[in-house]
Structures are given as structure tokens and as C-alpha cells.
Simulated assay, not measured.
Amino acid sequence: MSLSRAPRRTLLAVGVLSAALALSACSGDSNGKSGGGGNTNFVTNTGGISTAAKGERATPGKLAGETLDGKQLDVAGLKGNVVVLNAWGSWCAPCRAEAPHFAKVAKDFEGKGVEFVGLNTRDPNKQPALAFEEDYGVPYPSLYDPQGKLILFGFPKGTLSLQGIPSTVVLDKEGKIAARSLMALDEEKLRSMIEPLLKEK
């Protein structure tokens, strides 16, 4: 019995995630509310960006797998850099709106201690996602996460987790979750999430 239940639980979890993403996909900002539930110490500014103080940041779960270009990537290996994680899908209009800003900022920070990683989700195959990256000149890799498993299991409950598409999380140099946005970002807002973390000792 236990062998038959395990796959059902996995299917149920994936089904719940798919429903959640469908409801929140391409949604706007969080209206100043902190996500995750429970007793949190997140601060959300008027621009909809939530942050956690240095001593109160959580470590994400395993964020690793195959990229859209078929390589293996483990986000843990980027520790020592500020890491920008952006959940996106080629089907998402706000993702298309923010893509040029992400491409520009990623190029501007190249070689300066900042790494960008996309989390491509809900694209049933890689072709539309690869076309998206080519169209917008995306210079960084994206993990291929069609069922959203990395988004579901990569962020502990009660943390600044990715919710909806697009959403962005920035990890500090220690690999901890420091900032999150649940909306499409322009260049100014994206830089405002990165630059304070670059200055941290």
C-alpha cells in the first residue's frame, strides 16, 4: 500500500502546485502583504519588495537540475555571490515585459559578484523557452522546471518564497534568502534588490 501512496502524494503535490500557479500566474504585486504565513519578520516596502534582515534569513532547499541548454546547474555552487533567481514562463506577458530589464542588469553586473539563474516553469517543452531567451538576449542559464517542483520544494514554508509567475528571489553571499518580489520588475527595482546585498560584508 505504501508504494502506491507515495506516487499519489507526489501527484497531489504537483497538482496543488499547478493549481496555485494557475491562480497566481502573471499576477500583480502582493499589495504590501508578507507571504509565507506564520510569525515572520519580513519588511515589504511600497514597491512590493520584501526583505529579511541579515540574521533572520532562511536557506533555500536544493535548487539544482538541468538547464534549458542541457547542462547541470546547482545554485548552491554559486555561494559567495549575490544570486538572483527569477521564476518565469514564455507564456507569461509580465515575464516578457521584465525580460529586457533582467537581461540588461545581468550584463551590467557580469564579473561583479552577481549571478542570475532563471527558473523556467509551465513550458511543456523547451522550445518556446529557448526562443524566449533568444528573443530577449537572456545571457544567463535557466533551470528547466516544467512542473514547478523546484519552486514548490526549494523554498521552506514561512520564508520569502517564490509565488506566482513572475516572481524573483535574491540570495545573499551566504546563499540565504534576502529579498523577494512577486511582480514584474523594472531595472530600478531589480537593482534595488541587488545593490544592498553586494555591500554586505
Score class of each variant (00 low, 15 high):
Met1Pro: 04
Met1Ile: 13
Arg5Leu: 10
Pro7Ser: 10
Arg8Gln: 12
Ala13Ile: 05
Ala13Asn: 14
Val14Gln: 02
Gly15Ser: 08
Gly15Asn: 06
Val16Trp: 09
Ser18Asn: 11
Ala19Ile: 13
Leu21Gln: 15
Ala22Asn: 14
Ser27Gly: 14
Lys33Pro: 05
Ser34His: 12
Gly35Leu: 15
Gly35His: 08
Gly36Val: 05
Gly37Ala: 07
Gly38Ala: 04
Val43Arg: 12
Gly47Ile: 07
Gly48Trp: 15
Gly48Glu: 09
Thr51Arg: 09
Ala52Gly: 06
Ala53Trp: 10
Lys62His: 07
Leu68Val: 14
Gln72Lys: 03
Gly77Pro: 03
Gly89Asp: 05
Gly89His: 01
Trp91Ile: 07
Pro94Ile: 15
Pro94Leu: 15
Pro94Asp: 06
Ala97Pro: 13
Pro100Gln: 11
Ala103Asp: 14
Ala106Trp: 00
Lys112Trp: 08
Lys112Gly: 11
Gly113Ile: 04
Gly113Met: 02
Val114Asn: 05
Val114Trp: 05
Val114Gly: 04
Leu119Ser: 00
Thr121Gln: 08
Arg122Ser: 00
Asn125Ile: 02
Gln127Met: 15
Gln127Ser: 14
Ala131Ile: 12
Phe132Ala: 13
Val138Trp: 13
Pro139His: 09
Tyr140Ser: 11
Pro146Asn: 10
Gln147His: 09
Gln147Phe: 14
Ile151Tyr: 00
Leu152Lys: 01
Phe155Glu: 07
Leu160Met: 10
Leu160Glu: 05
Leu162Asn: 02
Leu162His: 03
Gln163Val: 07
Gly164Arg: 12
Ile165Tyr: 04
Ile165His: 03
Pro166Asn: 04
Ser167Asn: 02
Thr168Trp: 07
Val169Thr: 13
Val169Gly: 07
Val169Lys: 12
Leu171Ile: 06
Lys173Met: 05
Glu174Phe: 03
Lys176Leu: 08
Ile177Leu: 06
Ala179Cys: 06
Arg180Pro: 07
Lys189Thr: 14
Lys189Asn: 15
Ser192Thr: 01
Ile194Arg: 02
Leu197Val: 09
Glu200Pro: 10
Lys201Val: 06
